[in-house]
Amino acid sequence: MKKLPFLLFLILIALTACSYDSANPASSQDNDKKAAEQSAHSSATEADTIKEEVPSSFSFTYKDQQFEVVYYYKSFLEYIEKAEQQPENLNGLYIETIINPIAEERGIRLSKGWGFGTPRELETLEKYLKSLIDNQDTIHKIITDSLKKSANELQPGADKYVYVFPANPEDNHVMETMEGVAASAWSENFFAIQIAPPYFEEKSLKQAVAHEYHHTVFFKKNELSYTLLESVLIEGKADTFAKIIYPDIQMPWSNFSSEENESQTWKVLKENMTSAMPSIQDDFFLGNTSKGLPQWANYKIGNKIMESFIEEKPNITIGDWTDMPANEILEKSKYAEKH
């Protein structure tokens, strides 16, 4: 059975609740009409109430910095309603309802690559949204607490906008391995969080907020360099920062499974440090068995270099090593000498 849009479903339920007086057909019709009008009005009011209850945004000031957390749920509910009426136009509706408004509001155009592809499993997406709304208090507390803890360790330097989305249900396999949370930073002001409720772990959200927060602070003073070494250390720095805030949290990409894995990854990194080729960057993120690279090799080796750096230079502040060039981090870490 085709699934009715959620708000329309509420109205239809109310309309079918009208009574019928068989003893007086004319009166019954009048009563039916009045009852229908009353029910429709009641349902519309209830629908409006439900829409109002869907979280939208929350702003707060901390450490003299402005933070805004934007829960992008209403737009996804709107997308679902439109998509059920126009199933042949999902891509267009998604761009119109989700992608373009963010570009207009914040000057950020989300890539429609991994994580932001057009959702097609509408029923599952609606279940995701319901779960996120039901667990709003927990999600909101984790995000705001993690932002404040991050700001305690490293001043933001610029206002922050955190957008929270339901994950695309089609990405369920990757979201499961990432414990239900994916995140990405787009500028010094903006980062996005995607949550897949079936696999959601609170620790993953805590770590993701701290990790992406660090990226935004890094972007404030540093231009992106696309060499392999720089991309590796960007992730290593952000993970190290998250570990300082949450020392008991270990993520699946934190460590190598064996010394052999680490040794081979370091070998490939040494040979390609200055490379800016997208293919080698992809190898370090996705893994490449022919080169002996595990999945998330960039995070793993970045973490290891930063661990060595902190061990060698424990008195260098977070702010200083955040802005320190990647080649200097590597040199002072003495990681190369140890391996």
Results as ranks from 00 to 15, higher is better:
L4S: 13
L4C: 05
L7N: 12
L10K: 13
L12S: 12
A14D: 13
L15H: 06
S19L: 14
S19V: 10
S22C: 03
A23R: 12
S27N: 13
S27P: 03
N31M: 13
K33S: 12
A35Q: 15
A36F: 09
Q38F: 13
S39C: 13
S43L: 07
T45E: 12
E46C: 04
T49P: 01
V54H: 05
F60I: 02
K63L: 07
V69C: 07
V69Q: 06
V70K: 10
Y71A: 11
Y73F: 15
K74D: 13
F76M: 09
L77W: 10
K82L: 15
K82C: 06
A83Y: 05
A83W: 02
N91E: 14
G92K: 02
G92T: 10
G92N: 12
G92L: 09
T97W: 07
I99C: 10
A103R: 12
E105T: 13
S111V: 09
S111G: 15
S111Y: 05
G113I: 07
F116R: 01
F116E: 01
G117Y: 09
T118R: 02
T118I: 11
P119H: 04
E121G: 05
E121P: 00
L122I: 11
T124R: 01
T124G: 01
E126M: 07
D134F: 14
Q136D: 15
T138S: 14
T138D: 10
I139H: 07
I142T: 05
I143Y: 04
T144A: 11
L147F: 09
K148R: 10
N152W: 01
E153T: 04
E153S: 09
L154C: 08
G157C: 07
A158P: 00
Y161H: 11
Y163I: 07
V164F: 03
P166N: 03
P169D: 01
E170P: 04
D171Y: 04
D171K: 00
H173T: 04
M175H: 04
E176C: 00
M178A: 03
G180Q: 08
A182D: 09
S187R: 01
N189E: 08
N189V: 09
F190G: 00
A192M: 08
P198T: 06
H211T: 07
V217S: 02
K221W: 08
N222V: 10
Y226E: 05
K237A: 01
D239G: 00
F241K: 02
A242W: 00
Y246E: 04
P247M: 08
I249Q: 00
W253Q: 02
W253S: 02
S254V: 06
S254G: 00
N255L: 09
F256C: 01
S257A: 14
E259C: 00
E262A: 13
E262Q: 14
K270P: 04
E271L: 13
T274A: 13
S279N: 08
Q281S: 15
D282F: 15
G287K: 05
G287L: 14
N288T: 03
K291D: 07
L293C: 06
N298A: 10
K300I: 08
K304I: 00
M306Y: 01
E307F: 03
E307Y: 03
I318M: 14
I318P: 06
I318Q: 03
D323I: 10
M324Q: 05
E337Y: 04
K338L: 07
